[in-house]
Write a protein that binds this DNA or RNA. Structure first.
Length: 553
RNA sequence: UGGCUGAUGGUGUAAUGGCAACACAGAGGUUUUUGGUGCCUUUAUUCCAGGUUCGAGUCCUGGUCGGCCAACCA
């Protein structure tokens, strides 16, 4: 095997990992984690993080934990836990451990008391307004809280009482005692525990105090022995605090590294905004095929591999980015081109009557290949009959130059069947074309063409009486502007009202026999996937993505 | 008027002091029983000003512009 090993350039995090492994840091151990908060569904931005974290340990050894960052019981729910696990698995990744920050509540409580004991935390009775007022601004230092110098004993006692439910929600918090004049706002005595009389999805009513993110995340990393804790750029300023806690608590020094989150054109990526779209019914749910969620993309028909390939291609960097959604669509098409079963569907039927059809025959069986990219994929049959449907767009009475579909007097091949010639155009009283009378060339059958006729155009068709109806959900981008979040005003003002158009179409009669996992290419049209709600009795297809458009009139 | 962070074609990503490359998007051609696919060609890039160096996208200095930071969210 002297295969040329292509030199892959490493992203900056891989470089760090490789260097750490080489230097023997943590005895060469590598452990990452993917830490979602179970308060929403995963989206394509999370996929980037998933591919990074799991990809690192796939490439360099070690493992990745799935850890739910469930420190805020009022927004979190097991529904989200289940969807997140399902989505990670669907993308093709396996975690070594499933953990919850709430698993560490007892330990975190002890850590807090240790901080108090070291004189590094205190209970503050200030209201949130008072605290905000004393916090200062990024360019002006804050002021010490009047409660900042309580004794260690008093703090310990007060904190225990907080945990025992002796104080009202919002009346007291535990704060780290750091530096109210720090240029980093997060170091100005951050709140580390607050009172919430809320039912937690895992710990139930055991606690009425819950740690803040900053007091849970780094410690959870440390407890698990995470070597590389990877997060997005907005956490850069949290790193100083992250390190401070680990140092003062004298626990395993996990390290945090930050990369730029993914932004995609014509969509929004914050969970807050996505939740709003769901709650306010702009979409049908988290898994609406227009959503940038993993479940939405899955429902739309995006293959997991296309998403992973996309994430590999966009790379990992620290600069803000806005990636063209057409790059994602490229990977979807690339994948589906190799896997989708080719079938024919007619969206806007125009009747074609074959005037010279041998009526004594009834129908002529034609054989169509399932996928030209995969010769072994086999074939299926479709009947060529006297009355057919073709697409309205495939006929023009007065065609422009270079239009090589059907027009009066011209010939075209019906895909997988015969060459036909348009002899007569039938109009209604408004001048609309209602029917084409055509003759077919009996010797031109696909695969055994002896006619010697060469035609430029090939169009799709269906037997009029044998094709069946299906509901087609046509999706377009959810927003009318490239970057809804950066526009002035409410992002919802830029929603594309035509992002879902439901239509009826005719499809081949064999379609009900395929299972729900089959991905289709409606020839010359696009890729389509059976919707979750589709049944053999009522077929429903989601438009995954269109084919690249060539000729435009 | 603070701190942190970043800047390479239209969009992304590489080049680790030595010919600025790859993908997507765009344009053109070719093949094709999908105006798809494949194949070929092509347009277009180092934020600015100095400096170091034989040589700078890369190193240094100073600017400019962008992003993040003042939730009892994560």
């Amino acid at each position: 095997m002297s295969e040329e090993i292509k030199e892959k350039s490493l992203n900056f995090i891989e470089e760090i990992v490789v260097a750490d492994l080489k230097s023997g840091k943590h005895s060469g151990r590598l452990l990452t984690r993917f830490p979602p908060e179970p308060n929403g569904y995963l989206h394509i931005g999370h996929a980037k993080s998933i591919c990074l974290n799991f990809g690192l340990t796939q490439d360099y050894g070690g493992g990745t934990n799935l850890r739910f960052d469930d420190t805020n019981p009022v927004t979190e729910d097991t529904e989200y836990v289940e969807s997140i696990k399902n989505d990670v698995k669907w993308l093709g990744f396996n975690w070594v451990n499933e953990y919850y920050a709430s698993d560490y509540f007892d330990q975190l409580f002890k850590f807090a008391k240790k901080l108090i004991t070291k004189g590094l935390a205190y209970v503050d009775d200030s209201s949130s307004e008072e605290m905000a007022a004393l916090k200062g601004t990024p360019s002006q230092p804050g002021t010490d809280s009047p409660y900042r110098n309580r004794s260690i004993d008093e703090n310990l006692q007060l904190f225990e009482s907080m945990a025992n439910g002796e104080f009202k929600e919002g009346s007291k918090v535990l704060r780290a005692k750091i530096d109210m004049a720090s240029s980093n706002m997060l170091m100005r005595d951050p709140i580390i525990y607050r009172i919430k009389f809320a039912h937690h999805h895992r710990t139930g009513d055991k606690w009425c105090i819950y740690p803040m993110y900053d007091f849970a995340h780094g410690q959870s990393d440390s407890i698990e022995g995470i070597t590389h804790s990877i997060c997005t750029l907005e956490f850069v300023s949290h790193r100083e605090l992250y390190d401070w806690f680990l140092e003062k608590l004298e626990i395993f020094p996990s390290r945090q590294y930050e990369f730029a989150r993914l932004n995609l054109t014509y969509t929004v990526m914050s969970k807050r905004k996505l939740l709003q779209l769901v709650n306010e019914k702009y979409v049908t749910g988290w898994d609406d095929p227009r959503m940038p969620t993993i479940s939405g993309m899955r429902r739309r028909g995006y293959p997991a591999k296309a998403i992973v390939d996309f994430c590999d291609r966009i790379g990992i960097q620290k600069r803000d980015n806005l990636i063209d959604v057409s790059l994602l669509e490229f990977f979807v098409r690339e994948n589906l081109n190799k896997t989708a079963t080719r079938v024919m569907a007619v969206f806007n039927p125009l009747k074609v009557t074959i005037t010279n059809f041998p009526t004594e025959v009834g129908s002529i069986e034609c054989t169509l290949e399932n996928n030209p990219e995969i010769p072994e994929s086999g074939s299926r049959s479709l009947n060529f009959t006297k009355e057919l449907w073709i697409e309205k767009d495939d006929f023009m009475e007065n065609p422009p130059n270079k239009y090589f579909r059907l027009s009066p007097g011209k010939m075209v091949r019906l895909k997988g069947a015969f060459i036909i010639q348009c002899d007569e155009v039938v109009h209604d009283e408004n001048g609309e074309v209602t029917e084409l009378k055509c003759s077919y060339i009996p010797t031109s059958k696909s695969g055994q063409d002896e006619s010697g006729i060469k035609v430029k155009g090939v169009i799709h068709w269906l037997p009029a009486t044998e094709s069946i109806e299906a509901e087609i959900r046509m999706y377009e981008r959810l927003f009318k502007v490239e970057d809804p979040s950066s526009e002035e005003g409410d992002f919802k003002d830029f929603i594309n009202e035509d992002s879902l158009v439901t239509i009826k179409a005719y499809v081949e009669p064999t379609l009900p026999s395929f299972d729900g996992e089959t991905r289709f290419q409606f020839i010359r049209n696009g890729y389509y996937a059976p919707d979750l709600d589709s049944t053999p009795e009522k077929l429903i297809f989601n438009k995954t993505v269109g084919l690249k458009e060539g000729f435009k009139i």
